[in-house]
Structures are given as C-alpha cells and as structure tokens.
Amino acid sequence: MTRQKNNYDKVARQYDWLSKLVFYRSLENAQLSLLKFIPAGSRVLIAGGGTGWILERISQLHHNGLFITYVEISGTMILLSQKRNIKENSVEFVHLPIEDFTPEQDYDVIITPFLFDNFIPERAQPIFWQLHDALKKGGLWLFADFYYDKEKSRWWQRLLLKTMYTFFRLFCNIEADSLFDMSSCFEQGKYTVIHKRFYYFGFIQSIAYSKPA
C-alpha cells in the first residue's frame, strides 16, 4: 500500500511538543502575530492547521461570528482539532489533502501555517493558485513558514533544515527536500505585503498579504 504523502499522523500527538523543543514558541508566535488581521464576521480557510491550537487562539479574539473551514490531511490532527474550544464560531472540518479540496465559496481570509514547505515547486505552485482563486478580491492571506536564503542564512539553518526534512520524510513521507520561495507566487498574484516579521534568527517568516481589489 502506498503511503500518503505529507501526512503527519505518526507525529500528530507529539508535534506541538517537538516544535517547542526545537523552536521554543517561535512557530506559534509567527502564527499568532497574524491573527489580529482577521476581520470580525469573516469566512476563513485554514489549510493544514495541525493540532488545532490556532482555533482556540482565534476564538479568544473573536468569540463568535467566524465561519471557518479547516482542511487537514491528517486524521489524527482532525480528531485533536475537534476537541478545541471554538466558543460560538462555526468550524467545518475537512479531512482531505489541500490539493484535493474544492472550495464551495470564496473566503475573506486564508491561513497557510507551515503548509508550503511540504511541497515540491511543481505542486506548490498549483496549490497556490487554487487557494488564490478561493480568496476574495481584497482578501487577506496570512502566511507563516520557514525561510532560508542560500546567500544570507547561517550555516546552522541549512543543517537544521536538512535535519528537519530527513526526519519528516522518514516519518511523514514529506515529498520536498528543500524550501521553495513562495514569494514569487505572491508577486505574480500582485499581492501587497501589509505585515512582515521574522522569528528564530530569521529562520521563520510571518507575512500578511492583501490580494488586489
């Protein structure tokens, strides 16, 4: 039986603990810094939300009125996410790879937390345009992921990145073995950067993009 690519089932229950062991709270903080941009009453698509802790933090800012679609390939991650306190918001859990998800509506906000680092460029680009088409004009794309510049980044970042890919390819069948610079896609889509911040000595980036109106 062929193993499903980019599926974190095997490490789902340990994922948050592992991420804090290596990055302390940098992965979490990179995502938290973006949540303030979510308007009240929004339709939100979260692609690859992991264990769902982000749902609780969003619900602390918006106790009600949000309509969230939560797409996640890992069944175990979905089960963990369904136990979260979402207050009076509405969340639809979709157990699918994001590339197989067909939106039935347009969204005000799309959140992709550490999603694209899983994909090779040939697959990352079509997924970007698939999500681009699902985002309303003038909508917000909240993007958090790892960042590596071959000319400027530090040697230990290259080593850490290689170690991460080796680990997750072994346990989660990650298809990628290097980072693809997604900024080129956002440039092609003519997105505007309204917020940008780096964490963990520049190894993690947090960006809020606005789609052209």
Rank of each mutant, 00 (worst) to 15 (best):
Y199H: 13
N64M: 02
R43L: 05
P113R: 06
S183Q: 08
K190V: 04
F23Y: 15
Y200Q: 07
T192I: 11
Y199A: 10
Y200M: 07
K137Q: 07
S153V: 06
C172E: 10
K20G: 10
I127H: 06
I120V: 06
Y191A: 14
I46P: 10
M1H: 15
F186Y: 10
K162Q: 15
E72D: 09
K87P: 04
L161Q: 14
R84W: 01
L160T: 13
D133P: 00
P39L: 12
F180R: 00
E151W: 12
G75M: 05
M77L: 11
K152I: 11
R169K: 11
I86W: 04
W17T: 15
F128S: 02
H62L: 07
E56L: 04
L115E: 08
N64S: 12
L140F: 12
A176M: 01
V22C: 08
Y15Q: 14
N173R: 07
F167K: 05
G138C: 04
F198C: 08
L55N: 11
Q130P: 00
L66G: 11
P103G: 07
A213F: 00
S59A: 12
H132Q: 06
E122Y: 00
R158C: 06
A144R: 09
V109P: 01
I78A: 14
E92M: 00
A30D: 03
K152N: 15
D145S: 13
